[in-house]
Amino acid sequence: MTLDVLYFAWVRERIGLPRETLETQAATVADLVAELSAREERYAAAFADTSALRVAVDQALTDFDAPLTDAREVAFFPPMTGG
């Protein structure tokens, strides 16, 4: 499937780009993280501690074990600091 993957805040800085489109067979968010981490050191560094990260699938917050069935957009970012 084709997936848009977005990165924000220090995740964006560590990986070095705000978004990319990729082809993947990842079944869950965790599978996608493993696939990205295996690619290059900068991804492995950004995803080293997923407890420090949050994930949204199609713009809704979810968990790292969430399925990617029919997903079009996945975003990774640190805990939010609004207000």
Partner: peptide, 18 residues
């Protein structure tokens, strides 16, 4: 504070930090 997707970065003369 915790559920709206905003991230703040502070920039000082010493550098920038999230």
């Amino acid at each position: 504070k915790s559920r709206a997707p905003f991230w703040k970065k502070e920039v000082t003369g010493q550098g920038a930090a999230w």
